[in-house]
Design a protein around this nucleic acid. Structure first.
Lengths: 103, 103
DNA sequence: GCAGTCACTTTGCATTGCAAAGTAAACCTG
DNA sequence: CAGGTTTACTTTGCAATGCAAAGTGACTGC
């Protein structure tokens, strides 16, 4: 077993909740706070902190506007985020392959 | 995107270091504290805590003996650990597949 | 005009990850 | 054979994190 892929796993992305956010945004170019919250059944506080973490890492672009007189926070992956996520998935794929030699 | 696999990820296994430990032990039936430490270049403290966490979760069997007049801590997966790890890898595989629809 | 909802943000706490320091036994070494 | 070093861990302390409860502010129905 080669421990390298594990060592390279990006802790910012690796966390459950944030991986889910990144995955959603990889599939759907942009999603609102509320969409993310409902899709992932996360609590509000939990979600804002994860979004903030991803944003500070430069992985997420966040725009705040107003729609129908309500605040609307829209999130999307930055190019850096997209690439970091792709690399993370590659590492996971390596790990999966390493762990299932016979399939 | 289906968020289910993310929600099901076992936090005990998911953490980088512990995933690496579990992977090593899935490939190599038993390893000593020192083996793990060197292979994963972990600090001692970090490793004991992870081992303890995995042990308390019932995923790791830990036996302490003496070899060449030195303490020897030997770790191996329990059946529960093996299964939990296999499930975790399955979930990761699902996530990877979900994230790479076009390959 | 004030109770209630929506869309967040802030705060506080309890849990972790991590490494520095500690422990204990064996082993050189002069 | 006393004193220091190494090996193999464990404990402790702290900083960082995840999480949800409480807070904020704008709107909206009654």
């Amino acid at each position: 077993m080669n421990p390298e892929p594990f060592l390279k796993l990006d802790r910012v992305i690796h966390e459950k909740g944030r991986m889910a956010i990144m995955s959603l945004l990889a599939a759907t170019p942009e999603m609102s706070f509320t969409d993310l919250k409902q899709t992932l059944s996360m609590t509000d506080g939990n979600l804002t902190t994860h979004i903030k973490t991803l944003q500070q890492a430069g992985y997420l672009g966040v725009t705040k506007s107003v729609l129908n007189n309500r605040p609307l926070t829209t999130c999307s992956l930055t190019p850096a985020g997209r690439q970091a996520f792709a690399e993370h998935i590659d590492l996971l794929e390596t790990i999966v392959r390493q762990s299932k030699p016979n399939t």
